[in-house]
C-alpha cells in the first residue's frame, strides 16, 4: 500500500550525505514532505539545494542515508527507478525540451512510450494541458520557435502529462527574462492551489512568501532552518537565514 495514503510523508530524506570529490554538498539532510505540501527550498548559490532536489528522483546518487518516495527507497541503480521517476515530474532551469520534437510530441512522448497510453488519448490530454499553461496555439510549433517562458510552460505541461504525484522544480525561472518569470510562476501557483505536492528550488522569494506552505533554508549542505514563510521572513531564527532574508528583501 502506498505510504502517502496511510498518512505518511510522500518524500522522506534521512541522514543524506553526498560529496562531489572532497566537496561535501549535502551534510546529514533530514526532510519529510507531506502529500499536498508545497515546499520552497532556499539558500545561497552552491548551498546544495539543487543537489538535494535531484536526490529525490535519483538523478544524483547519495553516499549514505536514505531517500524514500511514497514509502519506497529511491535507488538510481535499481530497475524500479524508471517507473518511480514516471511518478515524479521534474522541471529544469534550462527547460530541456526535446528540440527534434514538436511541442505536442514533447508532451505525449513519455505518456505513450513509458506509460503505454493510446496516442489519441495522450494528444487530447496534451492539448488540455497546453490550455492550462496558456499556450494551446503552440501545439505544432518547434521548441526553438518559443520564448523562454513558453518553453518552460511546455516543460511543465510535459511533466504534468505523466500525472505525477510530486513535482520538482529546479530553479524554473532562473534562465528567464523578468517579464517571462511571472507567466511561469502563475502556472506554478495554480498547481499549488490545486493541491499538487511540489518542491521548488528558487530565488523567487515573492513566490515563496505567497504560495508555499514551508520554506526550507539550506546553507553549506545543511538544513539550517525551516518553517512557514510568514515566520521565516519576519523572524528567521538563525543568523545565516536572517542575513539571507535581508539580502533578498532589501537589495
Amino acid at each position: 500500500m502506498a505510504n502517502s495514503d496511510a498518512g505518511g510523508p510522500l518524500v522522506e530524506l534521512r541522514a543524506v550525505r553526498k560529496s562531489f570529490g572532497d566537496n561535501l554538498v549535502l551534510d546529514d539532510i533530514d526532510l519529510a514532505i507531506a502529500p499536498g505540501e508545497a515546499v520552497v527550498v532556499a539558500g545561497p548559490s552552491g548551498s546544495g539545494k539543487s543537489t538535494m532536489l535531484r536526490c529525490i528522483n535519483g538523478l544524483e546518487e547519495i553516499d549514505s542515508g536514505s531517500v524514500r518516495f511514497d514509502g519506497r527507497p529511491v535507488d538510481p541503480r535499481s530497475k524500479s527507478i524508471g517507473p518511480m521517476r514516471a511518478e515524479i515530474g521534474m522541471v529544469f532551469q534550462q527547460f530541456n525540451l526535446f528540440p527534434h520534437k514538436t511541442v505536442l510530441e514533447n508532451i505525449t512522448l513519455a505518456p505513450v512510450k513509458v506509460k503505454g497510453i493510446e496516442p489519441a488519448a495522450a494528444q487530447a490530454r496534451a492539448r488540455e494541458l497546453l490550455e492550462t499553461v496558456g499556450i494551446p496555439e503552440k501545439a505544432g510549433a518547434s521548441p526553438a520557435d518559443l520564448s523562454g517562458g513558453q518553453q518552460q510552460r511546455v516543460a511543465i505541461a510535459r511533466a504534468l502529462a505523466m500525472d505525477p504525484k510530486l513535482m520538482l522544480f529546479d530553479e524554473p525561472t532562473s534562465a528567464l527574462d523578468p517579464e517571462m518569470i511571472r507567466e511561469v510562476l502563475d502556472v506554478m501557483r495554480e498547481l499549488a492551489r490545486g493541491g499538487m505536492t511540489m518542491v521548488v528550488v528558487t530565488h523567487e522569494m515573492g513566490f515563496a512568501r505567497e504560495v508555499c506552505d514551508r520554506i526550507v533554508f539550506i546553507d553549506d549542505g545543511r538544513i539550517v532552518e525551516q518553517g512557514p514563510p510568514a515566520e521565516f521572513f519576519a523572524a528567521a531564527k538563525s543568523p545565516r537565514a536572517r542575513e539571507f532574508v535581508d539580502k533578498i528583501i532589501h537589495h
Binding site: L59, I88, M90, F92, N96, V114
Partner: peptide, 17 residues
Amino acid sequence: SRGQIEAALSLGFSYGA
C-alpha cells in the same frame, strides 16, 4: 546536452530508451 538525458530519465525512460 546532459540536460536532454536528464529530462528523458526524469520522465521515466530507461537509459537505453
